[in-house]
Amino acid sequence: MKENTALEHVGSGADRLDAFFTRRGFVKVSGAFVATMAALGLLPETAAAAPTSSKGKIDYYATPSHVLKINRAKCTGCQRCEMSCTLKNDGNSQPAAARIHVRDGFFYGSELGSGDGIYYSCEWNIRQCHMCTTAMCQTACPHGAIITDESTGVRSVDPEKCVGCGTCVAACPYHMPVVNSVTHKSTKCIACGRCAEQCPNGALELVEWENVNHASGPTRQENPDPLISEVQDYVGGGKVA
């Protein structure tokens, strides 16, 4: 198995991104305040390490009002969530630009060899934004394009400021934001809940914010089947009984 990352959960999974503040609400702080907090050791390492990027107006500790809670065992892979998301938020149907991802794991799970996907365990991940209190997509953005909604604490991309560089995608521990291949702007979940409304299996639920890092389900099987491409050419092709 490859080196574990924040993306990887086996079995019940481990919480690798502990929420620093879990209180509901929204705190607007200055860069100086962040620096002080960091110096005092009161910030999570990840946040302290991330430079302020919106000129003293970084919103480090916004606890968003809502988050999507998912249950992958219930997901039947219809991908209506992805289409519903973009119909609502972009005015078209463009799964590859959706703020929730099923399509890339549907066949083989989080990676080839995970033992997941329709060809193996019939489980795959529904990857959703965890609505981090310390939103690394936001802290990483060199253009301050990821802003915090003052009433909900939800981070969203300001398309006017976004230049489509993809820094947020790389910075997010779950690689959730997507740079739309047509508009060249990044997108991320704004907790609107439309995907959940159209999920025919109730695999998604928009809930009041809680730490969902535990709840995403495993990202691989504990004992994955060997890859077909490594064991047989075709059924009855000589390598199986």
């Binding site: 039947t76 892979g77 219809c78 991908q79 209506r80 019939c122 489980e123 025919p200």
Partner: peptide, 12 residues
């Protein structure tokens, strides 16, 4: 394990 089906279909 579950049901599945075609893209975009809520009837699994």
């Amino acid at each position: 394990v579950k049901m599945a089906g075609c893209h975009g279909c809520p009837v699994r």
